[in-house]
Amino acid sequence: GTEIELESKNGQREHYTATSEDEARKIIEKAVRRGIKRIELRGASEQLIRDMQEIAKQIGLQYRTDGSL
């Protein structure tokens, strides 16, 4: 699965493990709508990382991946 670590603007951290790319995408989209400061992805697919970079650029988000592409 993909591990997703979120940090909201007030510094609250949340951790999710998505079993599918679809689920990961839903978690990320929800977080973005809620207003999130930072997202870290571990074990994400190349496609998901590309999507994440696109989203991050659009809304000026900090993100990090573990680089295991």
Rank of each mutant, 00 (worst) to 15 (best):
R25C: 04
R13F: 11
S8W: 15
I55S: 01
E5S: 12
R42Q: 06
G11D: 02
R25E: 00
D51Q: 09
Q58A: 12
E7R: 07
A31M: 07
I28A: 01
E5A: 10
E23M: 07
I39N: 00
Y16S: 01
Q53Y: 12
Y63P: 08
I4S: 01
E46S: 11
L61V: 06
Q12F: 13
E29R: 10
S20V: 02
D51V: 15
S68I: 11
Q47A: 11
R33V: 11
K26P: 01
G1W: 14
I36G: 01
K37I: 13
A31V: 07
L41A: 01
L6Y: 08
Q62D: 15
R13H: 10
Q12L: 11
E14W: 13
E21P: 06
H15D: 01
S20D: 09
L6V: 14
R64G: 15
L61E: 04
E46V: 11
L61K: 04
I39K: 00
I49R: 07
E5F: 14
G67S: 05
R64L: 15
G35F: 05
Q47W: 05
L48Y: 01
I59C: 15
R64M: 15
K30V: 11
E29V: 09
H15R: 12
G67E: 08
R42T: 07
S45H: 02
E40K: 14
E46F: 06
R13W: 11
I59W: 15
I55P: 00
T2F: 13
S45F: 03
D51K: 09
I36W: 03
L41V: 13
G35S: 04
T17H: 13
N10F: 09
M52H: 00
L41W: 02
K9T: 13
G43Y: 08
G35D: 05
E14H: 12
Q53G: 06
E29Q: 12
T65H: 13
S20Y: 03
R38K: 08
E23T: 04
Q62P: 04
I39F: 05
K26Q: 12
L6K: 01
E40S: 14
E40A: 14
R34P: 04
G11S: 03
Y63W: 15
L61F: 12
I28E: 00
L48I: 04
Y16K: 01
V32P: 00
S45I: 03
E46P: 10
R33M: 12
L61S: 03
I4N: 01
G67F: 04
G67I: 08
R33I: 10
A44K: 01
G35C: 10
A44F: 06
K26R: 11
K26H: 09
T65G: 13
A31G: 04
N10M: 08
G67C: 15
A18Q: 03
S20C: 04
E5D: 11
V32R: 02
A24F: 06
Q58C: 13
T19R: 14
L69E: 08
Q53E: 13
S20T: 12
Q53H: 12
S20H: 05
I39A: 01
G43P: 08
A56I: 08
I55K: 03
K9P: 10
R33K: 11
K30L: 14
E3Y: 14
H15Y: 14
L6S: 01
H15L: 15
T65N: 12
G35H: 05
G1V: 14
D51A: 12
Q12A: 07
R25M: 07
G11R: 02
G43W: 08
L41Y: 02
I39L: 12
G60R: 05
I4T: 01
Q12P: 04
G1M: 13
I55L: 14
I28Q: 14
D22A: 12
E29M: 14
G1A: 14
T65Q: 11
T17Q: 05
E3N: 08
Y16T: 01
G35R: 04
D51L: 14
K57E: 10
R13Q: 07
T17F: 11
E54D: 09
K9I: 13
E3I: 10
T2Y: 12
D51F: 15
A44M: 03
E14G: 03
L61N: 04
V32D: 00
T2M: 12
E54P: 02
R34E: 11
G67K: 04
E23Y: 04
H15F: 13
R50N: 07
R13A: 04
E3F: 13
L41S: 00
Q47D: 08
T19E: 08
G35W: 04
R34D: 10
A18H: 07
I59G: 12
D22Q: 08
D66G: 05
I55D: 01
L48G: 00
I49E: 05
E29I: 09
K9S: 12
R25K: 07
A56L: 08
E3H: 10
K30H: 12
E5V: 14
R33T: 08
Q62T: 12
Q53V: 14
S45M: 02
I36D: 04
R64Y: 15
I36M: 10
I27V: 04
G60V: 04
T65S: 13
Q58H: 06
A24M: 05
R25S: 02
A24V: 08
S8R: 11
Q62L: 14
M52R: 00
K30A: 14
D51R: 11
G35Y: 04
K30G: 11
K26N: 09
N10K: 05
Q53A: 11
T19G: 10
E7N: 03
A44N: 02
Q53R: 09
E29L: 14
K37V: 12
R64S: 15
D66K: 03
I39W: 02
G35L: 04
E5L: 14
E54N: 08
E54V: 09
R33D: 04
D51C: 09
N10D: 14
E5I: 14
K26Y: 11
L61Q: 03
L61M: 07
A18S: 08
R38D: 01
R50L: 08
K37F: 13
S8H: 14
Y16R: 02
K9F: 14
E40F: 15
D66E: 07
S68K: 06
H15M: 12
